[in-house]
């Protein structure tokens, strides 16, 4: 495993038992990759369903009920994506730390999280009213939905592009 040009902690991390096991095991590395894909599919898919409803798709459906079904799906996806992502990171910690695309991806996910927090701390408290069938959500909620669509699609694209940079 080459490790030129990386910080000490990253070299230490990837040369540890977890990193070595991930690199040397035939089954574990593809399995963790596949679980990461399934995890982020549920995470992004659950969120996108709510975002699309926020920006106006399926306005016949009550938004709080769409969210009640889809956000737990997203949370399960998060619970799978994070540990598998951590394992993938440890496998090539130096390469990941110095990869600009990886940095962008993590940054965009952080923005997506901040956006979600702002939405849920703010307008979401009255979602039963403005999320009712036929009602147009307030502009901040719609903007947060559109921003979330942008952030998560970018995260998916950047995740795929990591290998190419």
């Amino acid at each position: 495993m080459e490790h030129g040009g990386g910080p000490e902690w990253a070299v230490w991390l990837q040369e540890g038992a977890v990193g070595r096991t991930m690199r040397e095991s035939f089954l574990l590395y593809p399995l963790v990759n596949v679980l990461h894909i399934l995890g982020f599919t549920a995470l992004a898919g659950g969120i996108l369903a709510v975002d699309l409803r926020l920006v106006g798709l399926g306005r016949r459906l009550p938004l709080d009920q769409v969210a009640r079904v889809m956000l737990p799906v997203a949370l399960v996806g998060l619970a799978v994506s994070v540990p598998t992502g951590a394992l993938l990171f440890v496998t090539e910690a130096v390469g990941m730390w110095t990869n600009p695309v990886f940095g962008w991806k993590v940054g965009i996910i952080a923005l997506a999280g901040a956006n979600a927090l702002a939405l849920h701390a703010g307008p979401w408290r009255r979602v039963a009213e403005w999320g009712a069938p036929g009602v147009k959500p307030p502009v901040f909620a719609r903007a947060a939905g559109a921003a979330s669509l942008l952030f998560w699609m970018s995260a998916l694209i950047l995740g795929r592009l990591i290998a190419y940079f």
């Binding site: 390469g95 110095t98 990869n99 600009p100 695309v101 962008w104 965009i108 942008l150 699609m153 970018s154 995260a155 998916l156 694209i157 950047l158 592009l161 990591i162 290998a163 190419y164 940079f165």
Partner: peptide
């Protein structure tokens, strides 16, 4: 989203 990915830097991919 696609435009955000930096095209300039390519180090090992």
């Amino acid at each position: 989203g696609a435009a955000l990915a930096p095209a300039a830097l390519a180090h090992h991919g």
